[in-house]
Design a protein around this nucleic acid. Structure first.
Lengths: 251, 251
DNA sequence: TAGTGGTCTAGACCACTTC
DNA sequence: AAGTGGTCTAGACCACTAG
């Protein structure tokens, strides 16, 4: 693997100076492709640094830098003495990376869920805009209620591109959706953006949460992206925050 | 610098296996101490990697690893071809690291501020608990209103340990408080935790924000810590989110 | 042109896990 | 004991900034 042909434009989200692409980024890209293609599924152990280095014709240090970067993004998990593994969306990871609602007086807990409905339909203009869908595309919509300690606390509206998740509308809705996306549809959620607002609870959500309409609730608008970077899920959640809070760490 | 005397307990927040402390962490600790002590003030350029390596008697790669880690925590800023600098709390940094309120339809902007009051008093039990203060300790309380595009959007209640900020109550309150803490009191804010809730606007804050009492607002409870890790500021902000949102990136 | 950080290599040894 | 990732070193060269 040589660096004699630097691609003119960068593509990994960061601003490359256009004209130089480090070797370790090319290694990273090739590893990412294999993971995105399902060559190494979640939970799979990767070859050792030395093996990857031999295959790609680079030094072990260069492979290490690529792997470290991917571990920092939670794409991989490295464990000394054991190996390097593709991250799984197990409960622990989802709990810490994606579920930010914490009891005021206690530890983080994984919520329980009840699916209220699940239908397929044509995407609205707003849904097409959020999910980068063409006109006429289909979506799957899921309504869900989640509880902590037996107390309803989140009313969710989830929208998925139907083309990525064919047949999901007819199946059971598990508590851990991201594990299902990965296992059954090969869609691995890698990062997301949340926009938070305080609003009065809309009628339907107030009923689900068993509070009066207009009660202040936290509205969380999340767009989740797959490992390839494309929008894979749009989710709006109305959260009760009288005995919970949304935890955000600023570094 | 040798690794023959591994300290029995780790102290940098992470769980060390108790019995091995890498050299680069010891380098990091020594650099941190100098920065915390004001030996290298914010904005100051550090010696080159080679110089530090020579002074500490370690290799350049080891120094590099320490510097990279500190840069990842925003303690340092590294610029190729120029050098390594102690981070400043300039507007750009505060805007991206600490001010998460973004207009729904536009770019991030730095808000304007109006100080409403600033007093010194004995700490309440709650304030002592939040800021780790002994009984009888004094605090400085600041009330502030912040605006974006001329529109009031945040009502702030700030509490500071009086012992760290003597004389602040009698001075002007600038827009960028964290720059003042660093420049005048040698207190560099390094990280913080925010707890978010949706609540009805309390009377005093509703008046400041010019909305009806009980209007849903985002309550942001922030505890900010200095570079040494001690609690340095407790801040509660009530934010209007009808045309703004709190932006949270999940990685 | 000199000085800085950034990349890449090669090799030695250490810490941890598993068999 | 074997295999993995983690640390540390030494040195070469590249990309960027500034005088």
């Amino acid at each position: 693997m040589e660096n004699t042909t630097p691609p003119p434009a960068g593509g990994s989200g960061t601003n490359e100076p256009l004209g130089f692409r480090p070797l370790y980024r090319q290694v990273r890209d090739r590893l990412m492709r294999r993971i995105a293609d399902g060559y190494w599924p979640p939970g799979q152990m990767l070859p050792s640094e030395a093996q990857i280095a031999g295959e790609f014709g680079v030094s072990q240090g260069t492979v290490r830098k690529a792997l470290d970067e991917m571990a920092a993004e939670h794409i991989l998990v490295r464990r000394q003495g054991r190996g390097t593994f593709v991250s799984e969306h197990n409960e622990q990871r989802v709990l810490f990376q994606y579920f930010k609602l914490v009891p005021d007086d206690g530890e983080r807990e994984f919520p329980e869920s009840v699916a209220l409905s699940c239908d397929q339909d044509q995407a609205s203009a707003q849904e097409r805009a959020m999910l980068d869908l063409p006109a006429g595309a289909g979506v799957i919509r899921i309504r869900r209620m989640r509880s902590l300690r037996g107390k309803p606390c989140v009313s969710e509206h989830i929208t998925l591109p139907a083309v990525l998740f064919t047949g999901l509308a007819e199946s059971e809705i598990p508590n851990n959706l991201y594990a299902l996306y990965a296992a059954r549809y090969g869609v691995t959620i890698a990062r997301s953006t949340e926009k938070l607002k305080a609003v009065g609870a809309p009628p339907g959500d107030a009923d689900v949460l068993r509070v009066a309409r207009g009660t202040p609730v936290l509205r969380v608008d999340r767009l989740a992206r797959s490992i390839e970077g494309s929008a894979a899920e749009w989710r709006i959640a109305y959260c009760l925050t009288d005995s919970f809070h949304y935890l955000s760490d600023l570094r």
